[in-house]
Simulated assay, not measured.
Amino acid sequence: MSDLTAYLDMPLGVHAPTAARRAVTAVLRGWGFRDEEWLEVAAVVTRELVTNAVRYGGGCVEFRIEARQGRVVLSVADTSPALPRHRDPDVDEGRGITLIEASPTRWGVHNYDDGKQVWVELTPCPGVSVDQPRSTTGRHHEHHSTHRTGL
């Protein structure tokens, strides 16, 4: 599989998570990812990333989908430097980070322009070969400081 990247500027507002969820599913299917359960995990993680960016991040929200060597990384950038944190869950909110930690193999945060980029590397999709060996040490969170130089 070749390296593929899609960038989407998401509209701020209540419809952004649904739009991102539909977009990630369409893009990944178009790239040959076919496992429905895996696509659903990608959609849920995307919805949570975008919901958190819209609710707590502010400014423009950039959503990126990357497929490299059979691995998929989803990321959302916003203009807030505030790091994601666990919140007490209630009926409407507070479950985002918990859901993200339960689904992907890895996630982290990078400095990005004047804000941050939260990224999630999904578990490999069944039926898609991964070209490089993978560590089996388990899930973990990473925080890196990097600066975006432009698109």
Rank of each mutant, 00 (worst) to 15 (best):
R71V: 08
V72G: 00
A77P: 07
M10V: 10
R139A: 05
G94H: 11
S75V: 01
A43E: 07
S135P: 08
E101C: 03
R95K: 09
S2C: 04
F63Q: 07
S75K: 11
R64M: 06
V109R: 08
R87Q: 08
W107E: 03
L39P: 07
R106N: 03
N111I: 01
A82Q: 13
L8A: 07
G96F: 13
D114I: 11
A6L: 12
T79S: 10
E121N: 03
H140L: 06
E66N: 09
E36R: 11
L28T: 05
V118I: 15
D78A: 04
R29T: 05
R71T: 10
E62A: 05
H86C: 00
Q69D: 12
V130G: 05
V109E: 07
R68V: 12
E142C: 04
A67G: 06
N111A: 13
D9K: 08
I100V: 15
L12Q: 06
L99S: 04
G57M: 03
V61E: 06
I65C: 03
T123L: 10
V54Q: 09
A43M: 09
V72C: 00
D92R: 15
R22G: 09
R71H: 11
S75W: 15
D3L: 12
V61S: 03
I97V: 14
A6S: 08
V72Y: 02
T18D: 08
T137W: 14
H110T: 05
R71D: 02
T137L: 10
T18F: 12
D3I: 09
E142H: 13
R29C: 05
P81G: 03
R148E: 08
L28D: 02
